[in-house]
Amino acid sequence: MLSNVNLAAVWLTLKLATLTTVILLTVGTPIAWWLARTRSKWKGVIGAVVALPLVLPPTVLGFYLLIALGPQGPVGQLTQFLGWGVLPFTFTGLVVASVFYSMPFVVQPLQQAFEAIGARPLEVAATLRASPWDAFCTVVLPLAKPGFITASILGFAHTVGEFGVVLMIGGNIPEKTRVVSVQIYDHVEALEYAEAHVLAGGMLLFSFLVLLALYSRQRASAWK
């Protein structure tokens, strides 16, 4: 079964992924809504920035985050001024990095769901006396539910699978920043293949089950 170090890594990974997903749903919903509805010329720019982590090597993202959050970086200066210290090599820093890293996996499904709903249901709701916020809660959210489920699954799974960004910004501190992917790397370096097998196999199974759930859901809704 799981050794104590492995268990700690699994627990840390789940905590990181859950927190990141919750934050991303909160932050990503308005961004996705804006991207789906706006006719602003900034739409392309913001959309591209959100999508960057899809194509950037995680080390590049991690490198810039490290500099920005570090003691000399603008964010680092702010966090020190606020008395929070510096974020790199802390769990909080890892959460911040993960939010950026997994952003497109949450924002894009939400944006697609909002775009598919279109403007009409909102207009209908307005003619039925619903204010924009009321209409968003009672019409858009229920209609976009499949998009929210997809976004949560992808955001969570992608955060669980991150490695490069974690190494750059979090290092390898047990129970603070040593997540499963880093732990596997450690085991392999130390030639502890049996330990590595347990975690790697677990990740493989987890990823497969997540994607299976996602694709069967899409199939089911396509049939409906």
Partner: peptide
Amino acid sequence: TYRRPLGY
């Protein structure tokens, strides 16, 4: 619209 007493 939502403050206009109309049906559409």
